[in-house]
Design a protein around this nucleic acid. Sequence first.
RNA 1: GCCGGGGUGGCGGAAUUGGCAGACGCGCUAGAUUCAGGAUCUAGUGGGCAUAGCGCCCGUGCGGGUUCAAGUCCCGCCCCCGGCACCA
Length: 953
Amino acid sequence: MADFLGWLRDIEAKWQRAWRESKAFEPSPDPSREKFFITVPYPYSNGPLHIGHGRAYTIGDIIARYWRLKGKNVLFPMAFHITGTPILAFSERIAMGDERVISDYRHYIELYEGEGADVDAILESFKDPLRLATYFASKMMADFDAIGYSIDWRRRFHTGEPVYNAFVEWQYGKLRELGLITRGDHYVTYCLLHRQPEGEDDIQDADVNPVEIVEYTAILFRIEGTDEYLVASTLRPETLFGATNMWVRPEAEHVLVRFKGKKIYVTKEALVKLQHQHPGEDLEVLREGVRGEELLGRRVVTPLGDVIPVLPAEFVDPDVATGIVYSEPSDAPYDLAALWDLERDPSLLTRYGLDPSIMEEVRMRKIIEVPGVEGHHAEVVMREMGIRDQRDPRLEEATELVYKQQYYNGVLRVPDDRFDGLPVREAKEAVRDWLISEGNAFIFYELNRKAFCRSGGKIIVARITGQWFIDYSVPWWKERTRELVREMTILPEKYRKAFLDVIDWLERRPCARLRGLGTRLPFDRRWVIESLSDSTIYMAFYTIAHIIRREGIGKEKLIPEVFDYVFLGEGDAGEVSRRSGIPEGVLEEMRREFLYWYPVDLRNTGTPHISNHLSFFLFHHTAIFPREHWPRAITLLEVLIREGAKMSKSKGNVILLRDISRRYSADLFRFYIAFAANPDSVLDWREEEVARARGMLQKMVSYLEDSMAAKGGVDPHIRRWFISRFWGHLEAAEKAFSQMKIRNFAFELVKAVLDDLDYVSERRGRGEALVLLREVAPDWLRAVSPIIPHIAEEFWHRLGNEGFVSLERWPGPGTRYPEDEEMEDAVMGLEADLRDLIRVLGGGRRARIIVAAGWKREFLSRVSEGARPEEAAKGVPRELRAEAFRIASMIRKRRYEVPTRVPDQGEEIALIEGAREYLSRRTGLEIVVEREEDSDSPRAGNALPLRPAIHID
RNA sequence: GCCGGGGUGGCGGAAUUGGCAGACGCGCUAGAUUCAGGAUCUAGUGGGCAUAGCGCCCGUGCGGGUUCAAGUCCCGCCCCCGGCACCA
């Protein structure tokens, strides 16, 4: 075939059209048939999908088609997700004229529209985020169709549709009634430029260098003789016991503010953070523009009552926490280094009018004991590393080293019974809690690093008040969900543990934001339900979406009572009809449809969803639905990479789904996805392997074409062998499928059968292979149709069949002929042995094949029927008994495997005679068959049933 | 750090859960055939030793252990990947 892929694409388009026109995959409830409801999470429609997404949909479609073939009434629906900020953000950036985004989207549009389209007009329309979303949704539909997915598109929707909003509002009303929605404060990364929370996606480099929120303890130190406080921040409040002095950066700008009734000094940077972390609280600024040097030389009283001086240090960063720190040189390398600097160079003090004698007030104390560390820990480490001053960049490393050792092995040694003897990791929390409870400290949130949003705005930590949460920590809810996970099917099984761990780990989770597309919280309309939280039970909506659309039912009619009735069976259809204005019959139809299809039989998606979407999916089902409507199974896929590397836009190595039907072919893609890797391993898309897969399909098609009109005789043994193997492959495929080993499934169905056809071609000639293929073709086409439905459909019709192979039944079971399989294995083994001998001997002219004597067959027949080899050997005539025991010992050592049925000598001779021409052709030897009884070869005694002795001359 | 998943030939990766490790494929080697195409076909391919075959020894990150039998189970290490919560 000159242009195999071209031919494939043509038949693919043809059959896709035929399926669509005949509405082949639009199932309705049919109580006489078992249903199978499979879902794959809907895509987020902000741009074209790539083959990574395609893996889950393709495997999903293979599963859908398989169960359809097994006779189930299969529903495979799809919808589109538009909730959240990304679509909104892209739309806004297009409206703002962001060149990079515009160029990306222009490119996407060109990809789909081709020449002559008004790209600018379409781009212009994207200023409306909904238009952007629906544009890509419709393109995704076309992409999916072009891969041959058997989706029921009547049920599609997107998450911005008012009717969907009504559904989600109902869901959240339910969750609230159940007491699963709570409200409280929440700390987030917040952009000062945009004045809104911004997550990882909006922060520069956050994907590679993560931004985390860390908790400092901000401790109040009263300035002696005043009612004002310096507030120093620390990650290690337990070191307060060793505090020797305060550090202030001389040139930093500080402010005096009234906070929680006290007058406190912090840096001006810290003030902004305080304001965002304590919104709505009185934060009265009393003095501004206080330079750090003004504070130097004062004495402060620690919460422990010690009096310590305020000294200058340049390592103090005014933009970290409160911008002031206290010094604990025994355990903090930075502090010790700064003290050394001051001792070494008194001018650092005198320049601020401080008398160097102030250093005498600094009294280092050892408060943490670590086994094996003598003296001050910081000093020990710094001397080892050779660090001398506070500008040394290795101070970070030294700090980390000390902290690590102390965290694991350190014990606090202080004159305070409450804390003395506590391990460092416990002391830290104990001291912090004590300080806070006494009003001497508060928590100050800070980032682990400086961060800026993509537009350059500074990111800080802010408190969101009145944040709505879903409270996954509610014990009965967790327990119900655990029960579900323990009962349901999860494949591969190894992920079940991951689900249980996620359930344990989940606590409260914010479920709404103040920005983004989606559904508003019904009980607080300022908030939009966050995108992962509005997609947990939407599979239920598929069961009625087409009816809502068909009937033109609007949001206003979809009052909560409608969903109560349809999904929970609550209330009375007549009453609900009166209230909602939806005809009673329609309500009942929706109820029937839901009851028929629910629960979800299978949800298929990638492992990255375990810790979020899939767990929420399970949680929400157990909260809202009765047990009989909980999901039945989850199947999981690992990710897809390309040529060993992750696909990413920045690498420019993304293959779009759109390209599949143009650059490859639907069946080739499907086959490759199925064949390249099992779902639980990473699939590496490699062009060379794709070409290999194409070669296999081409070979398959070529066999099929040639077989269409094949007829003629076939060797009966070879026929039984082939037919038996064929059904064996189908059985193996079914078994593989049941374990989600899709690769093995594809292997058995395609490669294994092709290999057998090749073998028959070699053994008996291509003509016989084609006749055999013609015999099994209808069954083969049915079986492969889940993977390569277009090729299957094409040849199914060429064979003169009516109707779609896609709607046929899985074939079999067929007749197996284990003896023929075993006998042919013997021929293969014989060939291999002959080849070995030629290699060892360096050649040969003639091979005498000596088949085992009759007495061995009688003896071994008894073994194959279940007798123990030694027992059976006893029945052998005395003069042969030694030989029989030798064979028995071989059997026990697995040096010889007894055939399941030992053929008689005549049969075995016929077998080898039948293979003589083949063996001769393959080995270049003349083949002669002899009986052991008649042979004068010294090797004749080696002969065993189906393992003849060989004598080469 | 916490939670999870993994370390098997030159490479990607198999091993029905304790039962002949390396399936399948890539690559490589040799041969055949043909150049109308990214070729195709045949044989070999973990290391070592042997050889009239249907063998022997060693080998699954490291160190111990259980067992007739361990890639698989147990104990202790090392390394890699993913996730860690207003992100679709």
